Amino acid sequence: MHTYLGTFIGVLMVLTLQRVKIGPWGGTGGHAWDEGGHGASAGGYTGVRRMSIGSSWCVSSMLFEYDDNGKRVKGTLQGERDNGIPEEELDFHGEVLTHMCGYHDNHLIRWLQFRSNRNRTFGPYGNLGEDKAGWTRFEVSMEHSGSIVGFCGRSGNFTDAIGVYVAVWNPERFYDSMRRQGVRVYRASPLRMDLRQIEEEKKKEEVERGRLQKEIKEGRERLLKLRLKLGVDVLQQYQEIVQQLERGREGKRQTIEELQVEHEQLERERGRLRKELDLKRLRESRLEVELNHMQTWWSKITHL
């Protein structure tokens, strides 16, 4: 009977389009967290499969595993985990959470307990103690009208606050029960949950866009610096090449000037030698004339 009823409840949870949020109860410290299954395939988680809750002088930590239309989804550890904390396994789909109660001192969850549709109790967690002055009791029960399929709250080093998401398969009975218990219920239809998921994804996209824009800006600055550095290096290389060419040209200019000087010296030497040769030739021609005169004179003497 339990198996048949559990399977029927599981089918109803998958088919129902109505999710509601109840709570949270507790303090305002720590950071907010929400495991309502906003991105789940059926518009929300379909049940709680396993939970591991730390218990000391208060509820120190929480870790849940959910069902998403037959697929196990592990939540995020809230608070400080103790490796010695046992894990409580539910016989899902046949067993679901239908009741939660506890105490908070307006700062932390001090005591907590759950019950399933099979009347199995989980907990208590925390320490109820004797002096509960200033503590506030909270309780939500939805037997035969809904089941807990997700959690939300606030946590730091400990559990500051806790709330639940409920899949409702008998709305009339459920809301009537909530009114009698004095519990405020917030509708969380798949559409609203999807919108919330879209908003969260939009925020993540904005953060990612900001990060990418920052990386692009830093990349452009690095590229500009690299271009400037390369420009300086190229300019330096160009200047060095120009200087080498100038030195080469200067060297060639000096060589040409030296050759011109040598050429002029050679031309002067050639002119000098030419003059000496002309003088020598002139003297030779004079000697030759004188010799002819002497021969003529000697001939005349010998014939006398």
Rank of each mutant, 00 (worst) to 15 (best):
G44E: 06
R247I: 04
R154Q: 04
E250P: 02
H104I: 11
H107W: 08
Y165W: 05
E89I: 09
W169N: 02
N119D: 15
E290Q: 14
G75H: 03
L304H: 15
R110S: 12
C152T: 06
A42Y: 11
R211W: 09
I241P: 00
R286F: 07
G10C: 03
S60P: 08
G75S: 01
E257C: 05
G27E: 02
G39V: 01
S52H: 11
R49L: 15
S285Q: 15
V20A: 09
L291T: 09
V164R: 00
E269K: 13
S285I: 10
V232T: 11
L63G: 04
R72M: 14
L273C: 08
W135P: 05
H293G: 04
K71F: 02
L226K: 11
G251Y: 03
E240R: 10
E80I: 13
M142G: 05
G23Y: 01
Y45K: 01
S285M: 13
T159I: 14
W169D: 12
F158G: 03
E205S: 14
L287K: 03
E262R: 15
E89F: 05
L77W: 14
Y125I: 02
Q239Y: 06
R281D: 09
R209C: 03
N292Y: 11
G75V: 00
D34K: 01
R179E: 10
E80L: 13
E80C: 08
T121Y: 10
V261N: 07
N170V: 01
I22Y: 02
R253V: 07
I22R: 01
R227L: 07
D105Y: 09
Y238E: 10
W111A: 04
Q18D: 10
N170D: 14
I148K: 00
T16M: 01
R173W: 06
E172W: 03
L15N: 15
E221Q: 14
L191C: 02
K203C: 11
E258S: 03
E250R: 10
Q78I: 06
H93R: 12
M51I: 02
H104E: 15
S145I: 00
N69L: 12
H293F: 12
W169F: 12
E206W: 04
I241C: 09
G271Q: 14
R184Y: 12
V166Y: 00
K214F: 05
M178P: 00
D131K: 10
R196L: 07
G153V: 01
V183E: 04
Y125P: 02
E269T: 11
S145A: 12
M178V: 03
F64Y: 14
Q254Y: 03
E88K: 09
G6V: 00
R281S: 08
G43H: 04
S41T: 15
S60D: 15
C101H: 13
D105T: 05
P24R: 09
